[in-house]
Write a protein that binds this DNA or RNA. Structure first.
Length: 478
DNA sequence: TCTGGGGTCCTAGGACCC
DNA sequence: TCTGGGGTCCTAGGACCC
């Protein structure tokens, strides 16, 4: 474990600008320069990312999509293409790892990099050159701009990357930390959310500078030991957290907000089963199993409950997770309506051969339980089709065409779904390297129209590639 | 305005153990 | 029995992050 040197600007925070929306504008020429909103497009959706053109209208992350639509009805509302985002993200992380092996991805669009192992004497000039080179390579390889913040710690790097977004590099020299942080609003400090900011403001603390001179005992009384003293340390620019390149997941979960509240326990049990299946598949894919099964229930009034049960052995069996989730669900009154249900597994460990055998036995045992329960109560095991299987709100299509989705037409080639409804689907035929494309409308069950792969973005040739003689390029291509 | 889905970490109380 | 002092595990809830 390596801690960053607090006297040198060796930590980078990388943050792709308006990431999901930027990928959409890259791949869809007709959306460039226009407001684009990516997120839940249904009744109960929220905004994941708004392009800068959409932010002008007041649209931002976590805002209900309904509200965004009122603010800017003419924006493009897209459901998101996470496979495409993942490809771009992996490429950026790869480029980051060329700077240093100490890269800690925080999400698809953010990561920390610690340069201090390989550049122990790094200074502002050197890190500036490294970071600018990196930003250029990201733009060439992905067509996207990335903001980079640099400081002596994760904390300072993170704050710096946000200071002049988009498409900016901000280096905070260790000697200027206090001056830079002091005047900033308390809310810009990572770990200060709506609740903490509110409480601090009520104590007359508005800026990071105010917080830096606050009384520690008082903060600990108000916010608890860890949060109270952590807050003060952060405000003073103290952050010894290392950049960690490999972190093990601690839990795996799946959850869903329903288009309309569910009240039938059998519907909920069936939904829980499907979520348990997905969780089990992901556990298996990452080679882990877990001892604690948790369900999450959000009621009609947004109050949220968690119920968990810890098993004697870790499991990754879909049947066992389903059975435990069903038991936990049975203990909750759902008559007034449930808007969200989730199933999760925590207490993860890498699984062994004996776990695999135990899972097989657990599958059988759980199946028997089901059968036994079915004999006692026929209704419970009937294959009940889920009642509220309606599409996830308007204007998503009944046929399942999602706005923004990649498609291929037998005659017209690759394009994307611009909208759908009343038995029709509208497609725009364009890609990242075409001019703005034409729109065509089809029946939503047109056999010539299929879901397609994400378009491939062609990186700009780099200066060094242009210098290489033609025959060398051909050899490299073979 | 009416609130996603995937996570992390912390707190606090009770059970249980030595 | 007018009553210790940890430590760990489990459960539930909450703040926060992207």
């Amino acid at each position: 474990m390596h801690h960053p040197d607090p006297t040198r600007p060796g930590v980078l925070h990388l943050d792709l600008d308006a990431f999901f929306a930027a990928v959409e504008q890259r791949d869809k020429p007709s959306l460039r320069g226009r407001p684009v909103v990516v997120g839940g497009t249904g009744w109960r959706g929220v905004v994941a990312t708004a392009s800068y053109e959409a932010r002008v209208f007041g649209i931002g992350s976590a805002m209900p999509t309904q509200q965004a639509r009122r603010l800017c009805p003419n924006a493009a509302y897209l459901a998101g293409r996470f496979d495409a985002y993942r490809v771009v993200s992996e490429r950026v992380m790869e480029l980051a790892r060329e700077l240093s092996p100490l890269v800690e991805p925080m999400s698809l669009d953010e990561a920390y990099v610690d340069l201090s192992v390989e550049h122990p004497a790094i200074d502002v000039a050197e890190v500036t050159a490294i970071a600018e080179g990196f930003r250029e390579r990201v733009l060439a390889a992905t067509g996207l701009t990335i903001s980079v913040g640099v400081g002596a710690s994760k904390l300072v790097a993170k704050i710096a990357s946000d200071l002049r977004k988009p498409d900016a590099l901000v280096v905070v020299p260790p000697g200027e930390q206090a001056e830079v942080l002091g005047p900033l609003a308390i809310r810009t400090l990572p770990g200060v959310g709506a609740v903490t900011a509110d409480r601090l403001t009520r104590s007359g603390i508005r800026t990071i500078g105010d917080l830096a001179v606050a009384d520690e005992a008082e903060l600990v009384r108000t916010f608890g030991k860890a949060h109270g003293s952590g807050l003060l340390a952060f405000a003073r620019g103290i952050d010894p957290r290392p950049v960690v390149s490999e972190r093990e997941a601690k839990s795996v979960s799946a959850e869903e907000t329903f288009a309309t509240d569910l009240t039938d326990p059998r519907d909920l049990a069936e939904r829980a089963r499907r979520m348990a299946d997905r969780v089990a598949a992901r556990l298996a894919a990452s080679g882990v199993s877990g001892r604690t099964v948790t369900i999450k229930v959000r009621r009609y009034d947004f109050t949220t409950l968690n119920r968990s049960r810890t098993l004697t052995r870790a499991t990754s069996s879909a049947a066992e997770i389903t059975a435990r989730a069903a038991e936990l669900l049975a203990g909750i009154d759902v008559a007034d309506g449930v808007r969200l249900l989730g199933v999760g597994v925590s207490g993860l460990t890498e699984f062994s051969q004996t776990d695999l055998l135990a899972d097989l036995l657990a599958d059988e045992a759980a199946a028997e339980e089901q059968t036994a329960a079915g004999d006692a109560d026929e209704a419970a095991t009937e294959e009940t089709p889920v009642a509220s299987e309606q599409p996830y709100g308007p204007p998503a299509a009944a046929a399942g065409w999602r706005p923004g989705q990649d498609v291929v037409h037998a005659e017209h080639g690759p394009g994307w779904v611009q909208g759908s409804g009343v038995g029709r689907v509208t497609v725009r035929f364009e890609g990242p390297h075409t001019p703005v494309g034409r729109i065509r409308t089809f029946a939503d069950d047109d056999p010539d129209l299929e879901p397609g792969p994400p378009p491939v973005f062609q990186p700009a040739p780099t200066a060094s590639q242009l210098e290489v003689p033609t025959h060398a390029v051909q050899e490299a291509a073979e």
